[in-house]
Computed example of a mutant assay.
Amino acid sequence: MRRSILITGLLLALSPLCQAGQIYKWVDAQGQTHFDAQPPAGQAATVVTPAIGSVPAPPPRPAVPASTPVGDQKAVDAKVKKQIADQEVLRKAYCEKARTNLAQLENNARVREEINGEVRRLTEEERQTRLLETRKAVEENCS
């Protein structure tokens, strides 16, 4: 509890310093993806364009048929492998978007969202709620 109060206090104290700052994304030598408000020294980084909003639902898990004739097993295996590969592509895209949203929520105290063409600023309570939801989604779906 004290830690979250301390973190919230620091975020509020530093909020003028990080108003709508850019988020940089890069991959280190070990293949780990990083997000930060400062670009890394001596390494190429891309600027992330945030898509703030509710975290989209994760893609559904592929269904495997219960029983099939033996002659069709290779066709079924190929179909299931293709479904799994397609689901993995969707999951990776979902995870990248969720991690980008999480970085934006963590690094910016002033987050704005557009709803029906109208831009409004999230309250601190809304930002913290979205932060928790996004962390939970990343933990559950992007291990």
Rank of each mutant, 00 (worst) to 15 (best):
V138H: 01
Q104C: 10
E106R: 04
R127G: 01
T33W: 05
E88R: 10
E140A: 02
A37H: 13
L6R: 00
E126G: 06
D86N: 00
C18F: 15
T8W: 11
R99K: 12
C95Y: 07
I115Y: 09
L131G: 07
A78D: 15
D77H: 00
A63P: 12
Q128T: 02
T100E: 11
R99N: 10
A41I: 12
A41W: 04
E139T: 00
N108D: 00
W26C: 03
A29D: 15
R121G: 10
R120S: 13
E114P: 12
L12Q: 14
C142T: 01
R3V: 07
A85E: 10
A45Q: 02
I52N: 04
E126R: 04
V89N: 06
V89T: 02
G71T: 14
A37S: 15
A137M: 01
L105D: 08
P69S: 11
Q128N: 12
E124T: 13
C18V: 13
S4Q: 11
A98E: 08
Q83L: 11
A109N: 06
P56I: 03
G42Q: 07
R2T: 13
T100H: 01
T8M: 10
K136V: 10
P60W: 05
E88S: 11
A66C: 10
R61D: 15
S54P: 14
Q38R: 12
L14R: 09
S143L: 14
V55N: 02
W26D: 08
A37M: 14
E139G: 03
A41T: 13
T129D: 15
Q87Y: 10
D28F: 00
Q32F: 12
S15H: 06
R135S: 06
N141D: 02
V76R: 01
G71E: 15
I5D: 15
A41H: 13
K25D: 10
E126M: 03
E126V: 00
Q73I: 02
K74R: 12
R3A: 11
S15C: 00
A98P: 07
I84P: 14
L105V: 02
I115C: 06
L105I: 05
I115D: 15
Q30H: 12
Y94K: 08
T46P: 11
V111F: 03
D72S: 11
A57I: 03
R91N: 03
P40A: 03
R91Y: 06
S15T: 04
A109L: 06
C95T: 01
D77E: 07
A66K: 09
A66Y: 11
A93W: 05
S4C: 02
S67D: 14
P60H: 04
L11E: 15
R112F: 13
L12G: 13
I7N: 09
S15N: 00
I52M: 12
V55S: 05
A20G: 15
A57M: 09
P59D: 06
V48T: 02
S54Y: 10
I84Y: 06
P62T: 01
I5R: 12
D77K: 04
K97D: 09
L105R: 04
N141H: 09
L131N: 05
A137E: 10
P59K: 00
T49R: 00
N101P: 08
A29W: 09
A20W: 14
D86I: 01
E88M: 05
V48D: 08
D28N: 07
S54W: 04
L14F: 10
A29Y: 12
P69D: 13
E88L: 11
R121W: 15
A63M: 14
M1H: 10
T49E: 12
